[in-house]
Write a protein that binds this DNA or RNA. Structure first.
Lengths: 141, 141
DNA sequence: TACATACCTGACTAAAATGGTCAAGTTTAG
DNA sequence: CTAAACTTGACCATTTTAGTCAGGTATGTA
């Protein structure tokens, strides 16, 4: 079980945005430099964040990104879903009439992973960007 | 973020074992057939479970595996750790003096993943094999 | 004692996911 | 009109996953 960098990068970038977008849009270049994340990779991530209406973009010189909602309205679950960092547990095909692993019944752990999924999602639904801002009033660059 | 099959297989196999090892040791072959898991893969998994004293083995004809403790004493966290299915979050090198991503300070999400890790582990520490047995009194084969 | 059964070990591998890079744009402020 | 910034999509090296394969070794039973 593993948490990947993409979700972490997305959260880091948005915290950065929340801190710096108050006056002007923030360019990915700036975020890249401040957070040490590859610019090209950031572009992929922000493309998804934009599709999910978490950020808005302005083109051209002095352009960049801003949050489309207030930090306390952006929950971590929104961010992680946007970049496809969902909790994937059992791969039992829900379509199929069969249970897990081709058996007639559900595998004995089926409910377990469901519970875990709920458990983790609850955690992410409670946390907002605002919560992270509070814990990190020290400067980062 | 993803949960892999290895951990799921380990739990499935141990639930199977808990149900059938009361009289004789259970052969991996039987578990393989009942649970639809490759025999060779099961051997790898059980090798780790044995190293971590979760199961005991008997060789020879009529041999097989039995649990080394009672089902209520085996927590999911023990099982998942045994098969290296730990929760891995940030890859910040703890050795290094530097913070995450080569920055001087901890990345803004550092504490977040720590919290999540604790949150998930708490879940696994509460659940025992016994708990899974209760929820699955229906037959599985 | 033979031998089948079952555990044990380690090397190997196809496929997928991860964590990016690279190239070629389009848009717009100045 | 041009540089800064967003946009899109193809591409790729590495690592992980989920096994397979090939050989063992140990031992209960006939």
């Amino acid at each position: 079980m593993k948490l990947t960098s993409k979700g972490r990068y997305a959260v880091m970038a948005l915290v950065d945005l929340a801190r710096f977008d108050t006056i002007n849009p923030v360019s990915l270049r700036d975020i890249s430099l401040r957070q040490g994340i590859s610019l090209d990779y950031l572009e992929q991530i922000f493309s998804k964040l934009k599709k999910n209406q978490i950020v808005k973009s302005t083109r051209g010189t002095q352009g960049g990104y801003v949050l489309s909602k207030k930090p306390n309205e952006i929950k971590l679950t929104n961010i992680l879903n946007a970049v496809d960092e969902k909790v994937k547990t059992v791969q039992c095909k829900k379509e199929s009439k069969k249970g897990c692993n081709g058996k007639a019944t559900k595998c004995v752990t089926h409910n377990l992973w469901d519970e875990l999924e709920t458990h983790i999602n609850t955690f992410f639904e409670k946390k907002s960007l605002q919560d992270l801002l509070k814990n990190n009033s020290e400067r980062v660059n």
